[in-house]
Simulated scan of single mutants.
Amino acid sequence: MSVQQLIETDRAFNEMAQREGTGKAFIAYAAEDPVLIRPGQMPLLGRGPFVEAFSQVKGAVLAWEPLRADIARSEDLGYTFGRYQVRENGAVTAHGVYVSIWKKQPDGSWKFVLDGGGATPEEVRAP
């Protein structure tokens, strides 16, 4: 497994969000017991609460771009981090950075086990 393949997984995750909606994509790419770090709130823990929360996501469009990734020597755990934008009615209303921790699944696919991010005062430039 190459680092590039993990970046491509994160890009495919974003592409699904653009085509089918943020909620659907987050549910599809989350592992069985995901953790979502939410600024100013307790983390969202577990598949049930995660699916419930993301089933209700509508309106704003979240788009992101992975900027860097790495995987463990064991090739079963990795991370991506990058930048994101939120758009409402075509206008950018927020931007920030994110990190996702990915775990290789028994079928060979990658699902995130932890995701979190935070807003930045201005758009983050690629390193």
Rank of each mutant, 00 (worst) to 15 (best):
M1S: 03
S2P: 04
S2A: 06
V3L: 02
V3E: 05
T9V: 11
R11P: 02
A17C: 00
Q18P: 00
R19D: 04
E20W: 08
G21T: 00
T22V: 01
G23D: 06
K24N: 11
A25L: 02
I27N: 02
Y29K: 07
E32R: 13
M42H: 04
M42W: 03
M42G: 11
P43I: 02
P43D: 00
G48M: 11
V51D: 12
V51W: 08
E52Q: 14
E52I: 14
F54W: 12
G59C: 12
G59R: 09
A60S: 15
A60K: 14
A63H: 11
A63I: 11
W64Y: 12
L67A: 07
D70A: 13
A72G: 10
A72V: 12
R73L: 12
S74K: 15
D76M: 06
T80Y: 01
F81Q: 11
R83Y: 07
R87H: 10
G90A: 05
G90Q: 02
A91M: 08
V92I: 15
V99S: 00
V99K: 08
S100C: 10
I101A: 05
W102A: 03
W102L: 12
K104W: 01
G108I: 04
W110A: 03
V113I: 13
L114S: 07
D115A: 01
G117L: 06
T120D: 02
E122Y: 05
E122R: 14
P127I: 13
